[in-house]
Amino acid sequence: MSQRIDGHPYEMIQILEHQRREGNTIGFVPTMGSLHRGHQALVEASRNDGNFTVVSVFVNPAQFGPNEDFDTYPRDNDRDFELATAAGGDLVWYPDVADLYPAEAQTSVLPGDLAAKLCGVSRPQFFPGICTVVLKLLNLVRPHQTYFGEKDFQQLAIIRRMVADFYLNVDVVGCATVREDDGLAMSSRNRYLKPADRDIARTLYRTLQAAKAAFAAGERDATALKTQLTEAWPQGLELDYLAFREPEFLNEVTQLEADTRLFLGAWLRGIRLIDNAAVG
């Protein structure tokens, strides 16, 4: 029987201590709620690894800018509990803001160069907010493994770097992007899209597919391919970035390799869209 815990983490910590004494490993999927099939795939990956699986649902105020959608971000805790448990979650925790950001707290995490590119340029508060809350969550849950989707690949790379830099005893597992039937990467913000906007939003997926096709055909010049893809970008979709990067430190490349990733960020009527994939 799956358990739901609202608020203070004390009860959760006691349950997880019991699981460790029983010899069970802990898997952890941190989310901001508004769960979808992509989140469920993370929960299933943890269960398939044999873990007692914890899902947290917390809309983190620290990662939103002053003009972003914190107040309107979709929230449905009962539905999230149903989806998390249907995927195999054993415990779903809903911390309050005061649990993770008590009034006396003063310390936050300042990530380095990995956070100063791609999404970090237009959203400078985003990755410090993510790192701070993820470090708090990992210290409270103390999982053996934690699961993040490759759709937010920059976030995944930053979390891996933070875990290594702070010698945290947890394995960060990246899971493949889950897509809608039309190729659009699953995202909680997709529900903001009007039916007429979906084909425009699919530009990101089509661009990734075009890059893969060019690489398969022998293209290795990253600058030339970037120019080609940028020139084909449609009006009405505001391009934030289109960049070929290596997968560990996300440095720009001039020559494409199989593991080079194309990163895309855009805005459509104020809705944030991101996607990425390896070209090989």
Score class of each variant (00 low, 15 high):
Asn60Ser: 03
Glu68Trp: 02
Tyr94Cys: 06
Asp80Trp: 03
Ala62Cys: 12
Ala62Arg: 13
Gln19Cys: 01
Pro95Arg: 09
Gln63Ala: 02
Thr72Leu: 02
Gln19Tyr: 04
Asp71Thr: 12
Phe58Arg: 02
Glu17Cys: 11
Asn48Asp: 14
Leu35Gly: 08
Gly88Pro: 12
Glu68Pro: 00
Val43Phe: 03
Gly65Thr: 01
Phe64Thr: 07
Gly23Leu: 09
Gly65His: 04
Thr72Asp: 00
Thr85Ile: 06
Arg21Val: 15
Ala87Val: 01
Tyr94Lys: 09
Asn67Thr: 10
Val57Pro: 07
Ala62Glu: 14
Arg21Asp: 14
Trp93Cys: 06
Ala87Cys: 06
Arg47Met: 02
Asp69Ala: 07
Val29Ser: 03
Pro74Gly: 08
Gly27Met: 11
Gly38Arg: 07
Gly27Trp: 12
Arg37Asn: 13
Thr72Phe: 07
Asn24His: 15
Asn67Ile: 00
Val92Ile: 12
Phe64Lys: 00
Phe52Gln: 04
Ser34Asn: 11
Thr72Gln: 07
Ala84Ser: 08
His18Tyr: 13
Phe81Trp: 12
Ala84Gly: 00
Asp76Gly: 09
Asn60Pro: 02
Gln40Trp: 04
Arg20Cys: 06
Pro30Ala: 00
Asn24Thr: 14
Val29Gly: 03
Ala84Val: 00
Asn67Arg: 12
Val43Glu: 04
Glu44Asn: 10
His39Trp: 03
Ala62Asn: 12
Asn67Glu: 06
Arg37Thr: 15
Ala86Val: 10
Glu17Lys: 14
Pro95Asn: 06
Glu82Trp: 09
Gly33Phe: 06
His39Ala: 10
Asp96Ile: 11
His18Gln: 15
Gly27Ile: 13
Ala86Ile: 08
Leu91Asp: 06
Val57Phe: 04
Asp78Ala: 13
Arg20Gln: 10
Ser56Asp: 10
Pro74Leu: 07
Gly33Pro: 05
Pro95Leu: 06
Glu82Leu: 15
Leu83Gln: 09
Glu17Tyr: 09
Asn67Ala: 11
Thr31Val: 11
Asp90Trp: 02
Thr31His: 07
Asn51Asp: 15
Pro74Trp: 09
Gly23Tyr: 12
Pro61Thr: 04
Ala86Gln: 14
Met32Asp: 00
Ala41Met: 00
Asn51Thr: 14
Gly38Thr: 04
Gly88Phe: 13
Gly23His: 09
Pro74Ile: 09
Phe81Leu: 14
Phe52Pro: 08
Met32Asn: 01
Glu17Gln: 12
Ala45Arg: 10
Gly50Lys: 08
Leu42Thr: 05
Ser46Asn: 01
Asp71His: 14
Phe58Asn: 03
Asn24Tyr: 14
Val59Gly: 12
Asn77Trp: 12
Ala41Trp: 07
Arg20Asp: 02
Trp93Gln: 03
Asn48Val: 12
Ser46Leu: 03
Glu22Trp: 01
Val55Gly: 08
Val92Leu: 13
Asp96Ser: 13
Phe58Leu: 00
Thr53Phe: 05
Gly65Ala: 03
Gly27Thr: 15
Asn60His: 02
